[in-house]
Design a binder for these strands. Sequence first.
RNA 1: GCGGAUGUGGCGAAAUUGGCAGACGCACCAGACUUAGGAUCUGGCGCCGUGAGGCGUGUAGGUUCGACCCCUAUCAUCCGCACCA
Length: 1131
Amino acid sequence: MEYNFRTIEQKWQQHWKDNETYKVSNSSSKPKYYVLDMFPYPSGAGLHVGHPLGYIASDIYARFKRLKGFNVLHPMGYDSFGLPAEQYAIETGQHPATTTEKNIATFRSQLDKIGFCYDWSREVRTSDPKYYKWTQWLFLQLYNSYFCNTQKKARPIADLIHKYATKGAMPKSGAPIPGTHFTADEWNGYSTAQQEEILAKRRLAFSAYGEVNWCEALGTVLANDEVVNGVSERGGHPVEKKKMRQWYLRITAYADRLLEGLDRVDFSDAMKEMQKNWIGRSEGAEIDFAIDGGEAPTLKVYTTRPDTIFGVDFMVIAPEHELVAQITTAEQKEEIEKYLTYVKSRSERERMAEVKQITGCFTGAYALNPFDGRKIPVWIAEYVLAGYGTGAIMAVPCGDQRDFGFAQHFHIPITNIIGEHYNGQEANPTKEAILENSGFLNGMVMKDAMGVAIDKLEEMGIGKRKVNYRMRDAGFSRQRYWGEPFPIVWKDGVAYPLDEKDLPLELPHVDTYGPGPEGEGPLANITDWVNLSDLTPNPSPKERGAAAQTLPGYMNSNTDEWRATIANAKAHRHKPTKEEDAMWQAVRNRQIKNCKFRRQHPIAGFIPDFVCLEQKLIVEVDGGYHTTEEQQQFDEAREKWLAENGFRMIRFTNDEILGQMPIVLQKLGEALSFGEGLGEVNETLKGEERQGEWVPRRETSTMPGYAGSSWYFLRYMDPQNEQTFCDRTVSDYWSQVDLYVGGTEHAVGHLLYSRMWTKVLYDLGLIGFDEPFKKLMNQGMIQGSSRYVYLLNFNKNEDLSKELQTPIFISEGIYEKNKNHKYVKGTELHDLIKEISIELYDEISTWGDYGFENSFTINRIRVDVNFVDGFELDIEAFKKWRVEYADAKFLFEDGKYICGSEVEKMSKSKYNTVNPDVLVDKYGADTFRMYEMFLGPVEMSKPWDTKGIEGVHRFLRKLWRLFFDDIKGKVWNDEKATDAELKVLHRTIKKIEGDTESFAFNTAVSAFMMCVNDLTDLKCNKKEILSPLLVLLTPYAPHIAEELWNALENSGSVLNAAYPVFDGKYLVEAEKEYPISINGKMRTTINIATDAEETEVKEIVLANEVVQKWLEGNAPKKIIFVKNKMVNVVV
RNA sequence: GCGGAUGUGGCGAAAUUGGCAGACGCACCAGACUUAGGAUCUGGCGCCGUGAGGCGUGUAGGUUCGACCCCUAUCAUCCGCACCA
């Protein structure tokens, strides 16, 4: 009877399915254990051998815990919303829902083959309305909550509103700041829009107008962690900064708690470190420096080193800093403007690529050192970021390398405050130096001086302690289709949440996936869905355009003329400037009835930046395009024509747009027939006064990929609940995820977001724990091991006759020996060619070794690893794969074609992926599972190598033969086990249990092999030994274990068997083979009774002839005896 | 530059508290069985050396009776962050 893994595995997989063996109950007398895998994004490429590594590890652990008597929750699902499906839809026209469904089916069948113990009745899909109903609901919880700075936790926004309405928001001391502080009466007098504007500053999910990472190619904004080196993480498209209205999660409010929580979870140091770096907490001080000359306000800087204040030689502020214009002196104005132009011209990517370049410009202004009155020049420079701290720094060149470089570059004198610690060659950021040249801080050690300096600054009222974070609030909206729609309706410029009973807000079906107008997502194209039907619909474009219908050169002109005009105008459209974008952002969302702004809409061949046809109002933003005389004449002609035809024009400068948007909106509003401003601050509107003028509109962006994954571990607990996202009693039972397994790539994205959501839910009392994952295990990446063939190219190829142009591939060894040669003649290669073509050899022999560069080159071509056995190429398979090489000739070494190799990321495009299905078909799931574990420690990255899988397969067959012989059939028996056999068993129990518990699955597999080898040697086929061994094996190789368990006539499933209990008595030995070292070097071993005492052992050791030989008749200097370990004789 | 991790045979790796370095497996070599072998079994397998023996865990030191393991310095590779004041 042979080990027929195909039949066995199929049989048991079906059996487990039919019997719902892996179904888990939410109530049990057993202790609970929650093992979770990071759920996959179902990509079209399917699984490769790298994906299941973590799943196998967690599956083993889940099964192990089950055998050890736990009620184990081990679910699986799909993170099925996301960009790739949508990109694919754009390319192929297939609906994301369709491709996602298909991909999930592929994943599922691949997963099923490996024999995982998931409870599939709990499957979740983030793109399922039944699931995202609760994602939307949770978003509303975030929207309806704020972070209370006193209690350091989330609370309902209603509490805050109540406080504002009854007590207002007044400062504890000092004068109230307009815009920040208000009384209850003032609050109650505010319009909804005004109140909302204030509340948006506190909500945990809020919308704001700010700088975002805009990716033109993807047509969406991205979160900071989705941007890598200035390009998008997915696809590698350029990313630029853009001002847009976006939704955000206030994750910064949780910065400290996210840091603190790391102390209470079992994550790797690397993982914790990554999160800490991302949060980037730093402690320091904000210091106000007066500007020399008086009028200007103070310059606020942030520093972590207030102790170095006497070493400040200059100030640097960000080019975007609001004070730049104000403090720049007349004589420096030109220089500064030149520099600002330069800065603006540089893309994010250029800045990143040229970090080392030192640039900057002096403003002409001086700040004053508050302690010694020293005049400090104020510079602007790119290296100071507007978004961090106060956007201004005090530069201490003797202590900071960047400041040092800057000072050197611009020849700014450097003050030394740290004596000999500063060598004049480079900065020294020490905190240990004793301060000099530092006024009242002289003689103090720097780290002690920090506190003293801050105290003094606080006392003087010009500084205070301040903690800063590098982390920003997380962008939460995407201009995409395939994501959760926001349960939000915009009305009168105010975001209104949907009622809970209206959830889920389902994603409407679309047929095209192109972006909506002007940076909006595809949803904006579905007007039926976007504009709410029970309210006045927006006029159609035709109606809106009616006002312009009678214009000469417009729609009433004859068709051909109109078309030509339009074509000409369209051809001259320009890429909008940053300012125009900002303007557009400001007007486009104002769905003002009978007043819609169009952008670069042609009118009689002119292209105004913006036009409202209904009101015949043109808005021009000065982009600086009209510089030539010709253009100016054109402008004049245009204005004349427009004026004659009843158009009015209003112009804004770029500076107005960027710096004074409220004023712009005010002016714009006045220019419209309403005669009022469009709003007060930014784009917040006087909603109530405008009531009826605005069309309610759904939010058209969708939530990002991490929305659904931030809470999925909770839904698994209670997946079918239609009343709530997860019943509190259920989440109290399952509580935290005990073991979370996944890759490191989610270190700062998903893991931070889900930790934050968990904390919010905890604060709101919806769950009972505030860290989602108790222990995190990161599986290593399985890299691909790519294979190459070497194609020989003769530069004189065209001179060769056709039949001599056959492609020639040379084996790796030949390549290595010849790759550095330029000329074939005289090389080993030359001689080898004789073997495959005497004609070619003769031809080459006629070539001189002069007259042309390089008579040959060698191309490396990737070859599919599946055609390579180790390093040896399967020539026939290769020829079939690349038909253009069907006639190719091969130069062998030792009769084989050996490929070159390189370790790199596993990916389809590199032809180095290995599909688990192939291996499962060939060796079976059990072999595959054990081999993946046997490769090495799970958390380590390693290249995949299929070769070794044979060894594991042989092991399973050898195990099988302990039960059944190919010829004799059944060989297992009911005989009584011997001590030696019991010793093997219990040694194995101990090892397997310990290794499994500590995730050392690779050594556990070794232990199984040793055990089977030993039992084979002992000719042990006894059920007494084999039965417990099968239980040990179940987590690793569940199919064969179940089959043999049943073959042994055991009752029930091995999955429900009791885990064997280790008994140390079987391992007790009377004698031990002691290693005997001479001077620490092992020379021999001696069998000595384990209970022998030191004196006795010493006697035995000294009597040993090997020891005698090494002693050469001398007495030993010393004898070290460690009981049950070793003996060391020092000579 | 900062932070984290890893360096051990031809290869993947093991060594649980400082105590026999290389378990287990791959590859390879020799042999047995066989019509055959990409099946199975037996033996060998760190390097140098015929041998005794010497050397050996990235490199250089140190602590120790004894170091892959602890300490110091240094090099290399991988991962993460990167003008964060």
